[in-house]
Design a protein around this nucleic acid. Structure first.
Lengths: 202, 202
DNA sequence: CGTTAGTTTGAGGCAGATCAACTTTGGTGG
DNA sequence: CCACCAAAGTTGATCTGCCTCAAACTAACG
């Protein structure tokens, strides 16, 4: 969901800056606001009791986040964390309610966004069952690199996004590099053959 | 999302009956309507190219379904299938659009529902990573039996809901029965100890 | 240039999938 | 109402993809 559509209607808001690794809101806490990214990137990470982490969604410049829990009216099911220097605009509950009431056309926008996200989440769920780790990692590389070309993703982040371990990501990436499908560049990488990367397996 | 909230606004609709196993709409086809369950139960099953199936959501009497793809404006990502004799009311696209326009308060209802469903889908995604098959199967038994006590779920359906195989479900259920946590009753089962079932592992 | 966080690679183990053979269930039609 | 049979379930044996643990290496930042 894009900030630009809502921006004209906002009368009051606060702004805050975060550095890489800082938590913007914490899993299990209650939502009180909506968040917008003025600049930077934010990741949504679910942490389970046994220490495993899953990277649920990424938000870039101009995106709204924190809306799922806000509208579900339930505690956050994940931490939101800055993935670099990030500037966030915070809209209070009162302001959100006013805007929703005065501009119902934005609700349809929100319905549409959530419907798309639900579809993606369910396809990822199915993907864990029917795709190999190599396939999931390859797809994650495509998604993360094309959507956020300036972000240097760690193996851990790619692993959490692919629902696997960072060792498995390292192995797949070594294999991809050996086949010239990607090219490692320090901790970063570039995609040499997008077609092969999309269809990679074993 | 409950039919009762929308029912008063519907002027035109069609009705159709389905028997167990019949497909109501097919994965990859385009949504043209919204569906309501007058009686019966409907399952949403994603099928992947390699033949694996994942049971994404269940809908009971009074529920709306087909709304995710409808509002995402994208092809269905799963088959919807009658899980028993089921009577469905079909609302055309034109009728949906009219109702959405005339009754924006329903949109907030839809936002809320989708936000809850997205949270559940993402927690299931995380669960595949951080829970054992025994835990996932136990949770599925709790959910499916408490929510739909009259439905006799096959091992395959429970497996697809738990993102595992029917053999694994059979093994877990045998173990649960040996510990008197559940009791098998033909193909059905009853829950003897809900607390232990919720927290079951290994 | 030292330190720390991140990465690579190997070896080994195991949870759960797969394959296979057999049993049970419950609906159907004679 | 019972006999039949296809569909569903059970159970054992085996296999394997991926995780885990470990150890050495390297990039990046102050």
């Amino acid at each position: 969901m894009k900030y630009q559509k809502i921006k004209p209607f906002i009368k009051h808001s606060n702004s805050r800056n975060y550095k890489r690794g800082e938590i913007i809101y914490a899993q299990d806490s209650l939502p009180t606001s909506l968040y917008f990214i003025e600049s930077g990137t934010v990741g949504l990470f679910h942490n389970s009791s046994n220490g495993k982490e899953v990277f649920l969604r990424v938000f870039g410049k101009g995106s709204i986040f924190g809306h799922r829990s806000y509208f579900a009216n339930s505690p956050y099911h994940a931490n939101s964390m800055a993935l670099g220097n990030t500037s966030i605009i915070i809209i209070s509950n009162e302001e959100c309610q006013r805007i929703c009431k005065e501009h119902p056309e934005l609700l349809m926008e929100m319905v549409s966004q959530l419907a798309v996200d639900l579809g993606q989440a369910e396809l990822r769920l199915a993907g864990v069952h029917d795709k190999t780790v190599a396939q999931r990692v390859s797809e994650s590389l495509v998604f993360l690199k094309l959507r956020y070309p300036d972000q240097v993703w760690t193996r851990k982040e790619i692993a959490d996004f692919s629902v696997t371990t960072f060792e498995s990501v390292a192995r797949v990436m070594t294999l991809l590099a050996e086949n010239n499908i990607i090219q490692k560049n320090g901790r970063d990488f570039i995609i040499n053959d997008l077609e092969k990367l999309i269809n990679f397996n074993i």
